[in-house]
Computed example of a mutant assay.
Amino acid sequence: MTKGNQAESMLIWDARFPLIRLEGSGCSSFLHGQTSARVDGRAIGDLIQACWLNATGRVQALLEIRLDSAGADVLLLNGDIDSVAQGFDRVIFPADQVRLGEQRQQRRMQRLQAEMMPDLQQVIWLDDNADPPTSWQDPAPCNSSELECWRNRQGWPLGDKELTGDTNPFELGLMHWIELNKGCYLGQETVAKLASRGGVKQELRCWRSTADDGTALTSGDQLSLNDSRAGIITSASRDDVTGGSFGLAFVRRQALDAETLLAGASGVEVSISRPSCFWEPPTRD
């Protein structure tokens, strides 16, 4: 285990996120039809991860949903709360038995464990006046740099260059956020075609610079293979131990089998690997 991973094994992510309140007995069925997750039949209090897609299957927001006896709370891990609220409001009908409620900020804490898939058992929501449980009070919350390093090592696509509104769940490695065996939902037709036929044009990958000369790569740097465009870096962090850099990148389909690519104007060699925590992409032809 590296020095960086030892530190990350003790990180706690403590932040506030926008939340939409839905009221009414039909919230479960409504969210089942508007998000990528199986919501019908889930227990009250369960945290449910879901994508909110557009009609062509592009990810517009990443959500956590929690049902209760009076309705549901929808927390946005990434996305624009007004767009989601307006999208919900446009498709709510009286027969749905759903009312759009207040928007607020919700405090959320998550343990960040190195080399492990993010676990919803390690997530809690806190009321404004509540103190965290004793077991959550040590260590101190991570800072933004530590969080960015963690997500870049784990392959969690939370950055604005990954979630652009033009990427689909399979490109992002969010297969487990999609329920393929349920009825119609927003974006379902495109998602079903991608799942059955494969053929995504790019996939998210972790990259790491093999140079130790201090060369830093940044978001927006191009990747190449045999003098052809192979992708683009979307997130970058500095490795204080080796002096190199690492992060996330979209790699084009034709370059996915390459173990190394060249990056940036100076052609820095980078190793490419599949994010171990998330990837279960559709089969490629």
Rank of each mutant, 00 (worst) to 15 (best):
I20Y: 03
A258M: 03
E189V: 02
R58A: 07
S135R: 09
K201A: 12
L112I: 01
G214H: 07
D221V: 04
E148W: 09
D80Y: 09
A265C: 02
S36P: 06
E102H: 07
P139N: 08
S145C: 08
D119F: 14
R284F: 14
W52M: 10
A265K: 15
G45V: 03
W13H: 11
C149P: 00
Q113E: 10
V241G: 11
R252V: 01
S28N: 05
D212N: 12
K201S: 15
A236C: 14
F88T: 04
R274P: 15
S69Y: 01
C277M: 15
S271T: 15
D119V: 14
Q103N: 14
S135T: 08
M1C: 06
A55G: 09
W156M: 14
G247K: 05
T260D: 11
I81L: 07
L186G: 03
L11N: 07
S9I: 04
E280T: 09
S266N: 08
W52Y: 14
N168E: 00
E115Q: 08
D239N: 12
T164M: 04
N78R: 12
Q121R: 13
N152G: 11
A265Y: 02
V251K: 06
S235A: 06
R108F: 05
L67F: 02
V98Q: 01
C277S: 15
I48P: 03
N54A: 04
L47K: 08
L174C: 05
A140M: 10
Q222E: 15
T210H: 13
G187Y: 02
N54D: 11
G187T: 04
S28T: 02
I124A: 08
E8Y: 07
L225S: 14
D40C: 04
E162K: 05
I272M: 03
N5H: 01
R274N: 14
W279S: 09
D46H: 12
I12A: 00
L194I: 03
G24V: 00
Q60P: 10
M116E: 15
R153S: 08
S36K: 05
Q113M: 13
M1P: 10
R205A: 13
V59Q: 08
E148P: 01
G71Y: 05
I12T: 02
A95T: 09
Q105G: 12
L217G: 14
V270P: 07
G33Y: 01
N78D: 07
L163I: 05
V191T: 10
Q106N: 09
R107F: 00
Q188M: 00
I233K: 15
L217T: 12
G57Q: 08
S196H: 12
I92R: 04
Q6I: 13
L256K: 11
L75T: 10
W13P: 09
E269Y: 06
P133Q: 01
